[in-house]
Write a protein that binds this DNA or RNA. Structure first.
Lengths: 287, 287
DNA sequence: ACAACGTGTGAATATATCTCACGCAATATC
DNA sequence: GATATTGCGTGAGATATATTCACACGTTGT
């Protein structure tokens, strides 16, 4: 059975409450003409006259009255069911890793808010890799090779490591103190090998828990950190950190990941993607 | 507040009952693809994920479940409200005068039914002129000058009077017996004058109640009737009646009259109009 | 590996819906 | 009575929504 559109029924219901079609149109925020057409379309679908012009106002016929009577508060029910869901419309839920959030995304948030005042980014950081298809996130930003199956991934930037330290540290040698993050312990070894150094990296090291702490330690002058260029860039630009050697690219990168299935707000995600890519190019947050 | 379309909600409801999207589509009589798009559109409007692919079937999210829960039987209510009205869809209610119905329209009904098996004509004959704008008729066929204000009238044919009688009556003279219908008593005088005769019509007359009875009386050989050509034509063709003198046109005619306002089934009425006009040209019912 | 099933997606097309400008009818106002 | 004023319906044109078809992807059996 083919149901009539909500628009038509809504028009009829509004017409019952308001004295005239014009007033009803006003309450719905559309033209009188639109309402007139809605009624006409509904009448065409049902094959019944619903509104009859008496005097200079429209009056509902018995058919229309009975329709509304039987329908009851069906429209209100629908509205009640739909409203709480719609409330979350202006929000884009993003899951990402802590370092990316605090050292890349969050510093750039003011720019996003300026360009997209209607979309609030809700950033959620987790240590574990979240299962996008089962949890209620619209997208995620992940670190890896971009080969997550069943998901669409667009590369934001490749990871590139370089040794950075407080400006008063002027060189990297076998005597230097290096800062290692437990979560990315192998970074120093990888940089060492990829940059063509021989032997092992300096043995003297400070070990911290997370990469964010490694950054803090480097800023404080505790030693030399192998940091991602994207994260170090603002500090290098401001002079709070100094690059001590070559920058080497890693095969991994940072990716914006979206799930398949019905994408509930594909257009907003698309805007986010474009913005992220443009931000990834400038490599520096505003302000 | 902008309500989502019934189609989308209906799709969601069907998806809850059926195990898979394909089955749901079957129950609604549309393609799987259509249902998929409906859901996607609904999700876009609400900005919420409603269906999530788990395994190889789609499963409703909590949001979708709660939506359906709050909405309750709203859709059923709408369907219940709409169904009884739709039942009258295949019917076109026509109000007309008795003579036109019995001597013109009804003999032609088989042809209409053959051409339009989906539309049943419900013919209602009344002596009084019905108020189309207030009563539940889709259209009317009226006799008159076609100047009914507020209504749209299309002429089917002009009225044309001629004297007819049983074939054994061979001439119209001042000695003839004329048949008069009380409802159209002046017809004989009008014909007499308009056909250029001098003096008065024959004084010897049989008076019956209606024009239909006048026709019967003429067929029975009771005298000469001043009959409308459109009504007499089939009898003239079959030889049961004979035309005894000139045919004179009257200013009145028969009109298909439709009301303004929202025309609940303009397309069907349009088909009726075309059919009536074609029938008016042939001037003879089939069979 | 391969087929069978269940889906999502994009293009092309058909419906629905909206706004705008216009004309007509019924009331108000002079 | 003439003349605004209010309330409508209608057609054209633009935009949004729905539908189908053909195709590609992932999952589940054999």
């Amino acid at each position: 059975m083919d149901l009539p559109s909500t628009r038509g029924l809504q028009a009829l219901a509004a017409l019952k409450k308001a004295p005239s079609l014009s007033k009803a149109a006003e309450t719905l925020g559309v033209t009188r003409s639109a309402l007139s057409h809605r009624i006409a379309e509904l009448e065409r679908q049902l094959g019944v006259t619903l509104v009859r012009q008496v005097g200079r106002c429209g009056k509902l016929t018995e058919d229309a009255e009975s329709l509304l009577m039987v329908m009851g508060d069906a429209l209100d029910r629908i509205e009640a069911a739909v409203t709480p869901l719609r409330r979350r419309r202006g929000q884009l839920r993003i899951s990402t890793v802590a370092t990316f959030a605090s050292h890349w995304l969050i510093p750039r948030l003011p720019d996003w808010q300026h360009l997209n005042p209607d979309v609030e980014l809700a950033i959620s950081t987790t240590t574990r890799t979240i299962d996008l298809t089962n949890e209620d996130f619209d997208c995620a930003i992940r670190h890896g090779l971009g080969d997550w199956k069943g998901l669409t991934a667009t590369r934001l930037f490749n990871e590139t490591l370089l040794p950075v330290a407080h400006p008063h540290i002027s060189e990297l040698s076998s005597n230097s103190t290096v800062i290692r993050a437990r979560s990315r312990f192998r970074d120093w070894n990888r940089w060492w090998r990829l940059s063509g150094k021989v032997g092992d990296p300096p043995g003297r090291s400070v070990v911290v828990e997370t990469r964010a702490q490694a950054m803090d330690a480097a800023l404080a002058g505790a030693g030399i950190a192998a940091m991602d260029l994207a994260y170090a860039a603002p500090h290098l630009a401001s002079g709070r950190l100094r690059a001590l050697d070559a920058t080497v690219p890693l095969p991994e990168g940072y990716y914006l990941v979206t799930k398949g299935g019905h994408k509930s707000r594909a257009d907003t995600i698309r805007r986010l993607e474009i913005w992220l890519l443009s931000q990834a190019q400038t490599n520096n947050p505003q302000g």
